[in-house]
Design a protein around this nucleic acid. Structure first.
Length: 255
DNA sequence: ATGGTAGGATTCCTA
């Protein structure tokens, strides 16, 4: 089973690129973040034409997540365990071929001195609680998405300058580590130790051209799935195509 | 010394 995650930064703006990418990459499952659209305006038919059903949790203008799958989906669940009715749409889960697939769009936090920063930390703590309440580390659980945190120095292009800034602050690294303490491993790091692999490059300036990015998009696996993981890679090429998202897809093959 | 671009809804917010 091939599973991918991609922050598309608007599914409507990215629709041609996503369709072409699905045709060439042929994942069984594509988890999407920042769809930025209400469910009625999601380009569902364009994905159905390629054989994918879509489960979504959308909202106007911001956020929005979805799971597109060409294998049957069951037990769809939207939101964190204690989300209010009007909570931002940042989390959706479904069971696919025995795997509990969860995808998250973690709050960015804006800056470390913003009120959004403690809210980001609290959201990650609530994500851990959602895992504890709805899954077990002994099961086949895959948690993927845009986590807006780079876990290690090798995941950022300038760790000295970026240390303590948003996306690379010790408090958010600790909050992410607590999520992983549920019993998850980073699929990309199973087979790749090297630095300079990133999943996001700012649109502004020469960031992509100089490969000045951050690795903030992940596929996390429980032990049983990690044992089944083949290749895991970041499709950087699609970041350089016409009208790209600022994020690249991350893909894993499970045996 | 704090730029720059992109998307979406409306002269600004978020990333």
């Amino acid at each position: 089973m091939r599973i991918a995650t991609w922050n598309v930064n608007s599914i409507r703006a990215r629709q041609p690129l996503v369709v072409e990418w699905l045709k060439t990459t042929e994942p069984d499952v594509l988890c999407l973040q920042e769809t930025k659209v209400v469910d009625d305006d999601f380009p569902t038919e364009d994905l159905q034409r390629l054989g994918y059903a879509v489960e979504m949790a959308g909202q106007k203008t911001y956020n929005g997540v979805a799971i597109a799958s060409r294998l049957p989906m069951s037990d769809v669940s939207v939101g964190l365990h204690d989300d209010d009715e009007d909570a931002e749409k940042r989390f959706i889960a479904a069971t696919i071929d025995g795997v509990r697939v969860m995808t998250a769009y973690v709050p960015n936090g804006k800056s470390v001195d913003s009120p959004d920063f403690p809210r980001k930390l609290a959201w990650l703590a609530r994500l851990r609680q959602t895992l504890d309440q709805g899954a077990t580390a002994e099961g086949d659980v895959l948690l993927c998405g845009d986590f807006n945190v780079a876990p290690e120095a090798r995941d950022v292009h300038d760790p000295k300058r970026l240390e303590g800034q948003i996306l690379f602050h010790p408090d958010e690294r600790a909050a992410l580590a607590k999520v992983l303490d549920f019993g998850l491993v980073d699929a990309f790091r199973i087979h790749e130790e090297a630095p300079k692999h990133y999943s996001w490059w700012d649109y502004r300036g020469p960031m992509l051209r100089r490969n000045l990015g951050l690795r903030i998009d992940f596929i996390f696996l429980t032990k049983s799935l990690a044992a089944r993981s083949g290749r895991c890679w970041i499709d950087k090429d699609v970041r350089g195509q016409n009208k790209p998202s600022d994020h690249a897809p991350v893909i894993v093959d499970l045996e």
